[in-house]
Measured scan of single mutants.
Amino acid sequence: VTTYKLVINGKTLKGETTTKAVDAETAEKAFKQYANDNGVDAVWTYDDATKTFTVTEMV
């Protein structure tokens, strides 16, 4: 189990959160659900070296 981080650069929601998951795909599903629940529709990137997902909402 690995800890993954999500950085949110949204128009109305900004911040960071983490989740523990067995792999990046599982973490991504959890983070996308979190973003969807909070109304963030954005572009996703992932950095495997830092285990960090970044979501940037387009203006």
Results as ranks from 00 to 15, higher is better:
1 V>N: 09
1 V>F: 13
1 V>C: 15
2 T>F: 13
2 T>Q: 12
2 T>P: 05
2 T>G: 06
2 T>V: 11
2 T>I: 13
3 T>E: 13
3 T>G: 02
3 T>A: 04
3 T>F: 05
4 Y>K: 02
4 Y>L: 00
4 Y>D: 02
4 Y>Q: 02
4 Y>A: 02
4 Y>P: 03
5 K>H: 13
5 K>I: 10
5 K>W: 12
5 K>S: 05
5 K>Q: 04
5 K>P: 03
5 K>Y: 15
5 K>N: 05
5 K>G: 01
5 K>F: 14
6 L>C: 09
6 L>T: 01
6 L>N: 01
6 L>V: 03
6 L>W: 03
6 L>D: 02
6 L>F: 05
6 L>A: 02
7 V>A: 02
7 V>K: 05
7 V>W: 03
7 V>T: 03
7 V>L: 06
7 V>R: 04
7 V>G: 01
8 I>A: 03
8 I>K: 01
8 I>Q: 02
8 I>E: 01
8 I>Y: 09
8 I>T: 04
8 I>S: 03
8 I>P: 00
8 I>M: 09
9 N>W: 13
9 N>V: 13
9 N>T: 08
9 N>P: 04
9 N>L: 13
9 N>C: 14
9 N>Q: 09
10 G>W: 13
10 G>Q: 05
10 G>S: 13
10 G>T: 15
10 G>A: 11
10 G>K: 07
11 K>S: 11
11 K>C: 14
11 K>N: 09
11 K>T: 11
11 K>L: 14
12 T>N: 12
12 T>D: 09
12 T>W: 14
12 T>S: 10
12 T>Y: 14
12 T>I: 11
13 L>R: 10
13 L>I: 12
13 L>T: 09
14 K>P: 06
14 K>G: 07
14 K>N: 10
14 K>I: 11
14 K>W: 12
15 G>E: 12
15 G>W: 15
15 G>K: 13
15 G>S: 14
15 G>A: 13
15 G>D: 08
16 E>P: 06
16 E>L: 11
16 E>R: 06
16 E>G: 08
16 E>C: 15
16 E>V: 14
17 T>S: 08
17 T>Q: 09
17 T>L: 15
17 T>I: 15
17 T>H: 14
18 T>I: 08
18 T>N: 04
18 T>A: 05
18 T>C: 13
18 T>K: 05
18 T>D: 04
18 T>Q: 08
18 T>M: 08
18 T>F: 14
19 T>I: 15
19 T>H: 07
19 T>E: 04
19 T>L: 15
19 T>S: 04
19 T>V: 14
19 T>P: 01
19 T>R: 05
19 T>F: 14
19 T>W: 08
20 K>D: 13
20 K>S: 12
20 K>F: 11
20 K>Y: 10
20 K>C: 12
20 K>T: 13
20 K>E: 14
20 K>G: 04
20 K>R: 12
21 A>L: 02
21 A>W: 04
21 A>P: 01
21 A>D: 01
21 A>R: 01
22 V>Y: 10
22 V>S: 09
22 V>H: 10
22 V>M: 09
22 V>I: 12
22 V>W: 08
23 D>Y: 03
23 D>H: 03
23 D>W: 02
23 D>P: 00
23 D>K: 03
23 D>E: 02
23 D>M: 02
23 D>V: 01
24 A>W: 14
24 A>M: 14
24 A>I: 10
24 A>Q: 11
24 A>V: 13
24 A>K: 15
24 A>S: 07
24 A>T: 07
25 E>K: 12
25 E>V: 10
25 E>Q: 12
25 E>S: 10
25 E>G: 07
25 E>N: 08
26 T>E: 12
26 T>I: 05
26 T>M: 10
26 T>N: 06
26 T>Q: 12
26 T>A: 13
26 T>Y: 04
26 T>S: 13
26 T>D: 07
27 A>T: 00
27 A>E: 00
27 A>M: 01
27 A>W: 02
27 A>P: 01
27 A>F: 02
28 E>P: 00
28 E>C: 14
28 E>Y: 15
28 E>G: 06
28 E>Q: 09
28 E>K: 12
28 E>M: 14
29 K>I: 10
29 K>W: 06
29 K>E: 06
29 K>L: 09
29 K>M: 10
29 K>H: 07
30 A>W: 15
30 A>K: 11
30 A>D: 05
30 A>F: 15
30 A>I: 15
30 A>S: 07
30 A>T: 14
31 F>G: 00
31 F>T: 00
31 F>I: 02
31 F>P: 00
31 F>M: 02
31 F>L: 04
31 F>H: 01
32 K>W: 05
32 K>I: 08
32 K>D: 01
32 K>F: 05
32 K>E: 03
33 Q>F: 06
33 Q>W: 05
33 Q>C: 06
33 Q>V: 08
33 Q>N: 06
33 Q>E: 09
33 Q>S: 08
33 Q>L: 11
34 Y>I: 09
34 Y>W: 15
34 Y>T: 03
35 A>C: 15
35 A>L: 15
35 A>K: 03
35 A>P: 02
35 A>D: 02
35 A>G: 03
35 A>V: 15
35 A>Y: 15
35 A>N: 04
35 A>I: 15
36 N>M: 14
36 N>A: 14
36 N>S: 13
36 N>I: 14
36 N>Y: 14
37 D>H: 09
37 D>Y: 13
38 N>T: 12
38 N>W: 15
38 N>V: 15
38 N>D: 06
38 N>M: 15
38 N>I: 15
38 N>R: 13
38 N>C: 15
39 G>N: 09
39 G>W: 14
39 G>E: 06
39 G>S: 07
39 G>Q: 07
39 G>K: 07
39 G>A: 07
39 G>Y: 12
39 G>P: 04
40 V>F: 14
40 V>L: 14
40 V>A: 06
40 V>P: 05
40 V>E: 05
40 V>T: 06
40 V>D: 04
41 D>H: 11
41 D>L: 10
41 D>T: 09
41 D>W: 09
41 D>K: 10
41 D>E: 10
41 D>Q: 09
41 D>S: 09
41 D>M: 09
42 A>D: 05
42 A>E: 04
42 A>Q: 08
42 A>M: 14
42 A>Y: 14
42 A>H: 08
42 A>N: 07
43 V>P: 04
43 V>R: 07
43 V>E: 08
43 V>C: 10
43 V>A: 06
43 V>Y: 10
43 V>F: 09
43 V>K: 08
43 V>G: 03
44 W>Q: 00
44 W>Y: 02
44 W>S: 01
44 W>P: 01
44 W>A: 01
44 W>G: 00
45 T>G: 04
45 T>E: 11
46 Y>F: 05
46 Y>M: 00
46 Y>A: 00
46 Y>L: 00
46 Y>P: 00
46 Y>N: 00
46 Y>I: 01
46 Y>D: 00
46 Y>H: 00
46 Y>C: 00
47 D>H: 04
47 D>V: 03
47 D>E: 05
48 D>C: 04
48 D>S: 08
48 D>P: 12
48 D>Y: 05
49 A>G: 07
49 A>E: 11
49 A>I: 09
49 A>H: 07
49 A>S: 09
49 A>T: 12
49 A>Q: 09
50 T>E: 05
50 T>W: 02
50 T>R: 04
51 K>I: 01
51 K>F: 07
51 K>N: 05
51 K>E: 01
51 K>W: 04
51 K>T: 02
51 K>Q: 06
52 T>P: 00
52 T>C: 01
52 T>G: 01
53 F>K: 00
53 F>R: 00
53 F>M: 01
53 F>A: 00
54 T>D: 01
54 T>L: 05
54 T>G: 01
54 T>Y: 13
54 T>A: 03
54 T>N: 04
55 V>L: 11
55 V>P: 01
55 V>I: 13
55 V>Y: 05
55 V>H: 03
55 V>K: 03
56 T>R: 04
56 T>M: 06
56 T>C: 07
56 T>Q: 07
56 T>Y: 11
56 T>K: 05
57 E>T: 07
57 E>P: 08
57 E>Q: 08
57 E>W: 11
57 E>I: 12
57 E>S: 08
57 E>K: 06
58 M>Y: 12
58 M>W: 11
58 M>A: 10
58 M>C: 13
58 M>N: 11
58 M>D: 11
59 V>S: 12
59 V>M: 11
59 V>L: 11
59 V>Q: 11
59 V>W: 13
